[in-house]
Write a protein that binds this DNA or RNA. Structure first.
Lengths: 232, 232
DNA sequence: CGAATGATTGACCCCCTTCAAAAGCGGTGG
DNA sequence: CCACCGCTTTTGAAGGGGGTCAATCATTCG
């Protein structure tokens, strides 16, 4: 226990709340979001923080954003990594209950919550898109919960790499780009950086993955084996 | 690792999918659900199983239902305990991705998914109720994820007891009824039955809780202390 | 009462954490 | 170009929290 990594870089307070992911094909939502303005963010900048008024939701246009919750003593649980196309900040409360911070340089598009909510009140189609988006997010969160609650370190890493592979585009090539630091992976999986590092090394030794240049690019050499290791 | 408790009692296949919780005040939803038929279930009966066609959603009328996911090797992660008023089985897929099993005798009301979806297509108000219900569920799942990913056994149990106290009615009296077995608590919190048992004993020894008759009724003797122990 | 199921308690062990140090990896400037 | 600095990752050694195995106790039900 105690993964404790610093949130750092408390940047100007952008907005919007809880969060959700948009599945492919949410045209109505996409249309609405196309109207928002785009913000360019440096690595480790905050998109929004817990407690901020929820004024916008954001669609990731480029880069990766970590959505997380911190405990009073600094321990941090990353809830999700949001990739291009994903939407963060959805919810029902007036304030954000989570924080969101870029993992690397990123672009996000902001859409007014007030506008979105007003539109959804009369547009059942839009409301359903929102509903499905949250269902998607819920499904992903449950998957992570199962991983963190039941799996060993090797299983967690295997599961994480496979999830990243299917989420972050590039399904064609068996390659995954680890834009995030080890500390981010650790805080997602409920492990420590040391255990993450050791476990990645172990997977490399076992021959299921290969690491490239500074450990940011991972080649999945044996995906079936990786799926076995993830155990379900 | 390896909590592994048997799902048991594979009962006649009722229906409906993913799942969600209804916040107080979802009148449209409540109205619709009032039309469904009520099923009476014994303890440990299944409401639905992973893979079942998603034909109904269920509102808990009485009792407690465990919503869970099992891994191939039998390990089990309980995602949520559903209490009266909660709705389970919401989702976007045609099949259930989770299983739901009663923890004790229970009554659930079934509502047709087809009917609900058709109604939501034209009724923006209903669609929004669904949206808010899933947001609520998402929020609860995230809270559990933080608990399982970051907290120690004592912190998990303290958090669990407090959550139960605020969820399962009875906020007036500092009393919690543990309708579920130790194995259910263990599979919710990512611990083993032995650790759950030992930790409850420890909390009792510390004087923060009291146990009654067969360990099913828990008195929260020092709630502020319990909140400290839950650490956030 | 005896069988079955669940809860508690004990003893031991292992996986992961903790603490610590070394090694990479960029960037910057002399 | 390379030395130096900050940050991250890797690796090592030691310890602990919770898991595993197993026995005892409690409760329920036939």
């Amino acid at each position: 226990m105690l993964a404790m990594q610093s949130p750092e870089l408390r940047t100007p307070p952008p907005q919007i709340s809880s969060d959700i992911r948009a599945p492919a094909g949410t045209l109505a939502l996409d249309d609405r979001l196309a109207q928002g303005t785009v913000r360019r963010l440096e690595a480790k900048e905050h998109v929004f923080c817990e407690g901020d008024p929820r004024i916008h939701v954001f669609r990731i246009e480029d880069g990766v954003v970590a959505v997380y919750k911190t405990l009073v003593d600094g321990r941090r649980q990353i809830i999700d990594f949001a990739y291009p196309g994903d939407i963060i900040g959805l919810g029902v409360l007036r304030e954000h209950v989570l924080s969101a911070q870029t993992v690397c340089k990123a672009k996000v598009r902001a859409l007014s919550v007030a506008t979105l909510e007003r539109a959804a009140e009369t547009d059942a189609n839009l409301a359903i898109k929102l509903y499905k988006a949250v269902c998607q997010e819920l499904s992903a969160t449950r998957h992570l919960l199962v991983t963190v609650g039941q799996r060993s370190a090797v299983e967690r890493l295997a599961s994480f790499l496979l999830t990243l592979h299917s989420r972050a585009g590039e399904q064609a090539r068996p390659t995954v780009n680890l834009a995030m630091r080890r500390s981010d992976i650790a805080d997602l999986l409920g492990l420590t950086i040391e255990t993450v590092s050791r476990t990645i090394t172990k997977l490399r030794t076992m021959g299921v993955i290969d690491i490239e240049q500074g450990g940011t690019t991972v080649h999945l050499r044996d995906i079936p084996r990786l799926e076995e290791l993830a155990s379900g």
